[in-house]
Design a protein around this nucleic acid. Structure first.
Length: 249
DNA sequence: AAATTATACAACCGCCGCATT
DNA sequence: CAATGCGGCGGTTGTATAATT
C-alpha cells in the first residue's frame, strides 16, 4: 500500500527544498527514493523527490527551446512509438520525458489537430455525427516483460554501435536488431535507417487495429490506402465509421 | 490599464510491472 | 500464491506568465 500516514508537502518546490534534495543526492546518489525525504530532511513523498530530481535538478537536464532537429526527432519517434515519452526522451540527450510530453502536447499536438481539421472538413471534432476515432500508432513489440532487452540502456548501447558500423558498410536495418525470438525490433532500426521508415510506419499502426487478412487485399494494402487519405503528418489516423468498419470488421 | 483568455510547464495522481517477503 | 512496497510511467491538473481584448 502506498500513501503517507502524515501529510506531506505538495506544490511548487522552494529553493531551500531544492538545495536539501541536491545535497542528499550528491551524498547518497539518485535512488532509494523512499529514503530520500528522511535523508534530506524534506517533508516530501518519494515520488515528489524523484520527480523533482529527474525533471528539474539533475545536472544532465538540457533546458531551453527545442531545436529543429529535436522537434523532428520527437515527431518521428512519436509516430513510431506513440506516447512512450520516456522512450522518446531517451533518444534526446538531456531532455526528460516530462519535457517531451509537455512540448508535444502544447506545441505539436494542437498544431497537428488544427492542421488536420483545416485540411479535411470531415474532421471537425465538434460534430458528433462524425464519431471520429483517433488511432494513435503504437509499436508492435515494446513490453519489457516480453522482451527485457527493450530498455533505454539497451537502445543507447546498441543504436550507437549500429550507427558506428553503418558509416563504413551500410547494412540492412533488419539485420541489426532482433529480439530473442528472431523478430525484428523495427522501431530501433528506424532510428538508424530512414530508408525503412515507410514500411515501419505501416507496421506501427497494426497494434491498434485488427488487421486479419481477408479477401484479396492484405491488411497492409488496406492500411496503405487508408493511411494515405486519413493519416495526418504526425501519424494519427482519423477514421469515420465507414473506415473503422473497413479495417476492424 | 484592467480583465479575460491562452499558453507553457511543473507537479500530482493512479496505475503497472517487478522484486521481495 | 498472495500481499506488500518500490520505481517508473503516462495522463491530467494547477498555476504562473504572456497575449489578447
Amino acid at each position: 500500500m502506498e500513501g503517507p500516514s502524515v501529510s506531506v508537502r505538495k506544490g511548487a518546490w522552494t529553493e531551500e527544498e531544492d538545495i536539501l534534495l541536491k545535497k542528499c543526492i550528491e551524498k547518497y546518489g539518485a535512488g532509494e527514493w523512499h529514503k530520500v525525504s528522511a535523508r534530506a530532511g524534506l517533508n516530501r513523498c518519494r515520488k515528489s523527490c524523484r520527480l523533482r530530481w529527474l525533471n528539474y535538478l539533475s545536472p544532465n537536464i538540457k533546458r531551453g527551446v527545442f531545436t529543429d532537429d529535436e522537434v523532428d526527432l520527437i515527431i518521428r519517434l512519436h509516430k513510431l512509438l506513440g506516447n512512450r515519452w520516456s522512450l522518446i526522451a531517451g533518444r534526446l540527450t538531456g531532455r526528460t520525458a516530462n519535457d517531451v510530453k509537455n512540448y508535444y502536447n502544447t506545441h505539436l499536438l494542437k498544431k497537428n489537430v488544427d492542421r488536420s481539421f483545416d485540411l479535411d472538413p470531415r474532421l471537425n471534432p465538434s460534430d458528433p455525427k462524425l464519431n471520429i476515432k483517433v488511432i494513435k500508432p503504437r509499436p508492435q513489440i515494446l513490453s519489457k516483460k516480453s522482451f527485457p532487452i527493450c530498455s533505454n540502456e539497451y537502445m543507447k548501447i546498441n543504436t550507437t554501435a549500429a550507427a558506428a558500423s553503418s558509416t563504413s558498410t551500410p547494412t540492412p536495418a533488419s539485420d541489426n536488431f532482433l529480439n530473442e525470438n528472431g523478430e525484428i525490433m523495427w522501431w530501433i532500426n528506424l532510428m538508424m535507417n530512414e530508408d525503412e521508415t515507410d514500411y515501419q510506419l505501416q507496421q506501427g499502426l497494426t497494434d491498434d487495429i485488427d488487421l486479419s487478412v481477408s479477401g484479396e487485399q492484405t491488411a497492409n494494402e488496406k492500411l496503405e490506402v487508408i493511411e494515405e487519405d486519413n493519416c495526418d503528418s504526425l501519424g494519427e489516423l482519423y477514421l469515420d465509421d465507414e473506415l473503422w468498419n473497413m479495417v476492424n470488421p
